[in-house]
C-alpha cells in the first residue's frame, strides 16, 4: 500500500472471463478511488504482483491455466502479507472453504456476488492489512527500543563494575 492510505489501494482482479473483470472494475472505479489492475491470466497477474506494490488480490476459482487456489497459494509464497480473496461458484464452495485454511485465504465471495457485500469484504481486507502493517511497525519499534535498553543496561553495568 502507498503508505497507510486505503483510498488509493492497489487492487488486483483475476478472472478468465472478461465480463466479470469489466463489471468488477467498473464498480470499483465508480465507488472507490482504488488503483484497479485486471488480468485474465493468473501467470501474468503473478508477475505483476512480484514486481509491484499490491494491497489485495481477488481471484476466480475455476480458470484454465491455473486454478484460483493454486494461484493465491503462489501469491502467499511471494508476498504473504497481501490479503487474498477467492471468487467462487456454489459447486466449489466446499473446496473454497477448505482452501481458506490450506492456503490461508482471507475470505471467499460467492457468484453471483452482491456489489455492496463485495465492497465491505474488500474494505475489511484492506483494513486488516493496514492494521497488520501498523502492528508490524510497532513490533519493530518495540524490538528497537528493547535493543537500545539492553545497550544502556550493559553501559550501566560496565560503569559500576
Amino acid at each position: 500500500m502507498t503508505g497507510l492510505n486505503e483510498d488509493n489501494a492497489s487492487v488486483v482482479l483475476v478472472d478468465d472471463e472478461e465480463m466479470v473483470l469489466t463489471s468488477l472494475s467498473s464498480f470499483l472505479t465508480l465507488e472507490t478511488t482504488y488503483d484497479v489492475h485486471t488480468f485474465t491470466s493468473a501467470k501474468t497477474a503473478l508477475k505483476f504482483i512480484e514486481n509491484n506494490d499490491v494491497d489485495i488480490v481477488i481471484s476466480d476459482y475455476l480458470m484454465p491455466e491455473m486454478d484460483g487456489i493454486t494461484f493465491l497459494g503462489k501469491v502467499r509464497h511471494v508476498k504473504p502479507e497481501i490479503p487474498r480473496i477467492i471468487l467462487t461458484g456454489y459447486a466449489d464452495k466446499e473446496n473454497a472453504i477448505k482452501a481458506i485454511n490450506e492456503v490461508g485465504l482471507y475470505q471467499y465471495i460467492e457468484k453471483p456476488w452482491d456489489n455492496d457485500d463485495l465492497l465491505i469484504t474488500l474494505r475489511n481486507g484492506l483494513e486488516k492489512q493496514r492494521l497488520m502493517k501498523k502492528l508490524q511497525e510497532k513490533i519493530e519499534q518495540i524490538n528497537k527500543a528493547y535493543a537500545d535498553l539492553q545497550g544502556i543496561h550493559k553501559e550501566i553495568v560496565k560503569t559500576f563494575v
Binding site: 472471463e17 464498480f27 461458484g89 456454489y90 457468484k111 453471483p112 456476488w113 452482491d114 456489489n115
Partner: peptide
C-alpha cells in the same frame, strides 16, 4: 446452474451498476 453463475454474476452486478 453452476455455469450460469458467471454470466449471471456479471448481469446482476451490471444491472446494479446501471442504477448507480
Amino acid at each position: 446452474a453452476h455455469e450460469i453463475n458467471t454470466p449471471l454474476g456479471a448481469l446482476k452486478s451490471n444491472s446494479d451498476l446501471f442504477m448507480r
